[in-house]
Nucleic acid binder design. Sequence first.
DNA 1: TAATGCTGCGCAAACGTTTGCACAATAAAG
DNA 2: CTTTATTGTGCAAACGTTTGCGCAGCATTA
Lengths: 338, 338
Amino acid sequence: MSDKPTTIKELAKILQISVSTVSRALNDHSSIGAATKAKVRKLADELNYEPNQRAIQFLNGKSFVIGVILPELSESFFSAAITGIEDLAYKKNYTVLLAQSHDDAEREKLLVEKMKTQRVDGLLVSVSKTTSTYEHFEVFRKLNIPVVFFDRIPPVKDIHYVASNLETGTYEAVNFLLKKGHRAIGMINGPTTLVASNERKEGYIRALTANRLKFDPSLVTSCDLSEQGTIHAMDTMLNHKRKPTAIVTFNDYVALFAMKYAASLQLHDLDFVSYANLPIIHYTNYSPIASVEQFPYKQGKKAAEILIDLINRPNNDTVEHAYFNIVIASQLVINKTD
Amino acid sequence: MSDKPTTIKELAKILQISVSTVSRALNDHSSIGAATKAKVRKLADELNYEPNQRAIQFLNGKSFVIGVILPELSESFFSAAITGIEDLAYKKNYTVLLAQSHDDAEREKLLVEKMKTQRVDGLLVSVSKTTSTYEHFEVFRKLNIPVVFFDRIPPVKDIHYVASNLETGTYEAVNFLLKKGHRAIGMINGPTTLVASNERKEGYIRALTANRLKFDPSLVTSCDLSEQGTIHAMDTMLNHKRKPTAIVTFNDYVALFAMKYAASLQLHDLDFVSYANLPIIHYTNYSPIASVEQFPYKQGKKAAEILIDLINRPNNDTVEHAYFNIVIASQLVINKTD
DNA sequence: TAATGCTGCGCAAACGTTTGCACAATAAAG
DNA sequence: CTTTATTGTGCAAACGTTTGCGCAGCATTA
């Protein structure tokens, strides 16, 4: 029956007043009499009037859509992050346009283009593992559309980002291992293109030097985060002249691959520490003895908050060169499985 | 510099032709001369013209947004499903408006309202565990906005849905257990409000009767899918006079809870079969010996396909009463761990 | 009484695009 | 050399909403 939604025009015609009066009445404008307001609101309620968001968005040139490009939703870090993003966006009446790069740099480039075509008001990005150039994001800078990176930050100056402070988390983790008596501690790190990899390494180095131990670069290997890559990295570790008794891995998946491989070699005396603290590690055969929690939900929420803030900021160039670099403190969580 | 995007008007002014000609030229309309078309396209390219999607959407009364309401993105079933949805939506130039009910019926109701306000062109829903009434979806029926349910289907007539055929999957699973020699097979089922629970039960019964075994209703318990609920269900199972030697669980999480509990009771001779076949079960201490794969990506994709199909269908009431009830065949996957 | 201020409302433009209709110019047919 | 068809283009309306400006009616003040 009620096929087409009620419009402001229809309300005006029924009440024999102008559309502008109806609009102002509904928006509680000061120049409309109380009696008229009440009349309009009553009819609006009765007819189930809903303002046409598309018309409004079109009118004031805003789409109220924020684009989100991330590598893989099936990784629980990102599904937690998107939840944070969605929660905030929804509260602020923004729509989330979702897209996955599947860790493919080419696809990521295409998605950025699509986001542009869709005229998003802002963009949230966690860059793909394979991305090594970052010019495709420059389009947005030219169009004055804010971009906020989260978690996987490109090694570029003058960008907004939200990330966890992995340097201190790593410092805590390595310190923890040293206190447990380990002296040869290996690190299976991620691709060197990721800032996150460097932060881990720096935390690792700082913990060692703080404990007056010499940093041995060959005990840190980088890998592509795949199972094969992890095995390769493990071989490097295990063949090292100072065979590590504990290994810090880039994330829980790498840890699981590494532990699986270690188990297949009958090595049960290795201690692992990793990042993320995914729920799955509580079901596994062998668990990392500790994890650095990165609070993905919080990260996503904060990134969305900053983005929406930037979107609604007046466009004066004076503050343009102030960049948000938010760092969420990570926290070492010790698994009480012993 | 290029602060505001190029519009069709600007192109028209520069070329000294009318906006309608420009519009038609860009849309490759037959009534525009080849020379003009070329001219327009050239300038459009040079000025990086992009049609304003919001204006188009507003004009033809379509939002090109499909709403998706699902319980939890952090459950990998749903993150796989949303990937399928997003992939298809993106291909068809639709935007995905994402929202999670967090398995809260009240929040779900609110989200449905929000989706209405946002004027989505269609809605994709996987209902929350706690939802027991379904009138809030009726608004959409009245507005002639299509709704397609997936995976968690409300027990209501005359709806579109995509689900996996759990009856046959369960039949296969129970058959498999019977062939392995089990005679007392328990089932920890989900809430009875879910159609999926009934389907599992029916498959279970059919497998038993097909093998000339008597169905014992007390060997099937329903639970709320929480760890506590699972433990309670396990107690029921283990105290049963015909103590089961194998148990079919509602999903992998329930299986993991159950196996954890069984391990804590030193029961290592129980065989488990579950649903979903999540990657995590390959890391766990004890794995289900088989899983029913439900192809969440495929389900999401198919549901989105149907929804977009319905959106673009001419509005004649004659076909209105034809409902899509798509069933994706599930498949028993046997884990080759032993 | 005239000037001024306030209150409540309507008119019309604007946002970017599509599209039915009209119309001019040219070509083909009679 | 007219009529008719064809091709290419422009005009203007429409989508739903907001908002600057103008104006009428009335009350207050000088």
